[in-house]
Write a protein that binds this DNA or RNA. Structure first.
Lengths: 107, 107
DNA sequence: CTAACTGATAACCGATTGGCTATTTATTCG
DNA sequence: CGAATAAATAGCCAATCGGTTATCAGTTAG
């Protein structure tokens, strides 16, 4: 069972998918047609990628007539930021321990 | 040709690989044997994963006798942080434009 | 109502992935 | 030296992935 971080990292690991997400961040809400025009792959491929991004919570879709508008959900990046700072925290913590040890040895 | 972000995201997209990296961040430098003991997969699998992490710049290896010690390279996460804040920047920028538009309309 | 259009789904295909076992290479110990 | 140990590499396999074309479903326009 894939956890939250898995789904996020996997979704962003593909360049086409990341480009779609970047496009939505840059220009805001866009239709599947507009996204397909710049994606360099077929419309079904784009739809599938958007499905993966949606599953990861990275995009939202809004139906309007026969068009579907997608928009980026920036909040979905939070776990990624959290994970990163957690890694940095571990590192810092080990650094602190070392610093402490050196300080004690110095006495 | 896979770019920098690709290699990074792909490397971190696998749970086993991410767990290895987390272990190295938490506890610092460790041998392949120690990492294998907790990885839940075979030693060759661990070696292959470490190879991928190394390729992404996320770990460094140091040979000492017949053992290989691996350690996390926290700096390799920088492009990930940059990318995230760039996405946030795009979003903020669009928000600012909207804010500006509303301000002008208000006059 | 029919035709055209937009996007999603289905079915398929080749490449890549992540795992395994077996083997190789390098180092240490007796 | 030869045996044992640590890690890397080779070769294999099933599953997943990203792409395609063909088709379907829903919506709008004539």
């Amino acid at each position: 069972m894939p956890d939250l971080h898995d789904v996020l990292f996997r979704a962003l690991a593909d360049p086409t998918r990341r480009a779609l997400f970047e496009g939505l961040c840059r220009k805001g809400e866009q239709t599947v047609g507009a996204l397909t025009a710049r994606a360099g792959v077929s419309q079904p491929a784009v739809s599938k990628h958007l499905g993966v991004l949606k599953q990861a919570g990275l995009v939202r879709d809004r139906h309007e007539g026969r068009q579907t508008h997608y928009s980026a959900q920036l909040g979905a990046l939070a776990p990624l930021i959290d994970w990163t700072s957690q890694m940095a925290g571990f590192w810092q913590s080990r650094f602190d321990q070392l610093e402490n040890l050196l300080k004690r040895m110095d006495q």
